[in-house]
Design a binder for these strands. Structure first.
Lengths: 218, 218
DNA sequence: TTATACCAAGCTGTATACACCATATCAATT
DNA sequence: AATTGATATGGTGTATACAGCTTGGTATAA
């Protein structure tokens, strides 16, 4: 948010995740450069990072195309997120504090309001803030890095699904935030990870995928 | 290996992993540009990717400094590798073939020769080829990506340790390749992952770390 | 009418000149 | 002598001009 790079990178990632740039959109470097008031050079740096993140695909002579995740890829990413979530409590978690609980309570309140008047943007922001909270709990830096990366790769699909099927989304989110509150109140980071894993799993089910072939059975 | 980018990227990563560029080394863009016969621009792209990989650290006005992993980071990376390896067999593995077995047999033979005449470079190449083989088994693309990334982040530490303590390294590698051979012969990718997990765990122990504080106990 | 070959326009990839930043050196002052 | 300040030097970050690739359109010939 502070350096120009971070600011532009966050903006573009936000647009891709919220489908302002739906899959297939062609991003032109010169256009983005003029929009953000910089030259093509820093824009290219941002696009390269987005490319490493798997969010766009740069093709010489054509443009930077927002990727369209296939069914297999969606399944793979969700499977990884489910597994990683199970490990959150074992990845050198920092101690959960009363302040964490306050934040979680606030998120639950926002989710409760959402059940009365649903707004997709607010739904997203609650999800996002909860992700930031939980991510901050992970002490293992390698783990946290992967956790964040997969979150942003999965966000589009989830957002699209909720946008098309908003019924029940607020109730589910309220239930999730409630469970998160409890786990944090109990200062039990292992439980916190399990809650995450469960709700990601529910999400995968709702997305309609039990996997490309046979589901993973451990 | 084909595009100039891939070629330069692989070269520099190789040099960092094999400690040709030990931690603290300052990489100058113009110097690398003249060495590879290109301008600073593609060099910068490579360095940015290496920065995302956590192998270097770009500082404005100073240079691109090869990172020095701290004890905590080493432990985190190893813990993740141990956990991910356990999971290889469940990450949509492709079917193991007789050709895989032939490759594994060849690796074991090279390891056997290594026990008679140890050479650190050959040790590294066997390890690397084995990594490529096992990585190719992972069908879950998100998982494979993380697996590769952590491998290159951990390689330096392991290489340094073996270089300083070569005794027993060849025997251990021979044992590992033997177990890999067996798992592949049995076409059991779950076992293959467990073998990997075990030997990574042995490696962490040898590196001298049971963790920064208390070890993870699941 | 259809197919093919060429061409033009626009994009990304590259090279290079310039601006800004960090640091080491050296002189001036206390 | 020690310290502080300016300054020169060499680095990365940025802007821009150019080269190479892709693609859509068009003209021409079968």
């Amino acid at each position: 948010m502070y350096t120009p790079f971070e600011s532009i990178y966050t903006s573009l990632r936000h647009r891709i995740c919220l489908l302002d740039y739906p899959p297939g959109t062609v991003l032109r470097e010169s256009q983005l450069a003029s929009e953000f008031g910089v030259s093509r050079t820093p824009i290219r740096a941002v696009l390269q990072k987005l490319s490493y993140d798997g969010l766009i695909n740069s093709q010489d002579g054509v443009g930077n195309i927002v990727t369209e995740p296939g069914d297999e890829e969606i399944f793979d990413i969700y499977q990884m997120r489910i597994k990683l979530a199970e490990w959150i409590g074992y990845a050198r978690p920092r101690e959960l504090t009363d302040q964490d609980h306050d934040i979680a309570i606030a998120l639950r309140q926002r989710a409760e309001i959402l059940t009365q008047k649903f707004e997709i943007s607010e739904y997203w922001m609650i999800n996002h803030d909860q992700h930031l909270l939980i991510s901050s709990v992970i002490g293992n830096s390698a783990m946290r890095q992967m956790w964040d990366q997969l979150y942003y790769r999965a966000a589009r699909m989830w957002y699209q699904h909720i946008r098309d099927n908003p019924s029940g989304a607020a109730d589910s989110l309220l239930a999730e935030t409630t469970e998160v509150c409890r786990a944090i109140y109990e200062k039990n980071s292992i439980a916190l990870g399990h809650v995450q894993s469960n709700y990601i799993s529910y999400g995968l089910k709702n997305l309609g995928g039990a996997g490309p072939r046979d589901a993973v059975s451990e």
